[in-house]
Amino acid sequence: SDCSAVLEKTREFFQICDIEGKGFITRRDMQRLNGELPLSAEELENVFATLDADGNGYLTLEEFSSGFSEFMFGPGVV
């Protein structure tokens, strides 16, 4: 049940970022959170660059989920 709760939270948070429902998050989407979350534009850019594992400029649910799982359970748990 922990896993399903984390999966659900992952999807919820992904949808907060991917407000247009494209299925991926762009840098512009992340910068849009500048007013909603207590993080600076630079910190949001840092988050995007860290999560965007392949560096192609499109943050997929898989990359986002991998980052969130690492935050929740530590490295190596995907």
């Binding site: 939270k9 979350l37 840092n46 860290t50």
Partner: peptide
């Protein structure tokens, strides 16, 4: 090691990001 510092800084920002999302959803800081 600058790489270690960079990685630690990234982890900190990621933690801030996800904690902010958690607070936003639950309304509890």
């Amino acid at each position: 090691d600058p790489n270690m510092k960079g990685a630690a800084a990234n982890e900190g920002v990621l933690a801030n990001f996800f904690n902010s999302l958690l607070s936003k959803k639950t309304g509890v800081p």
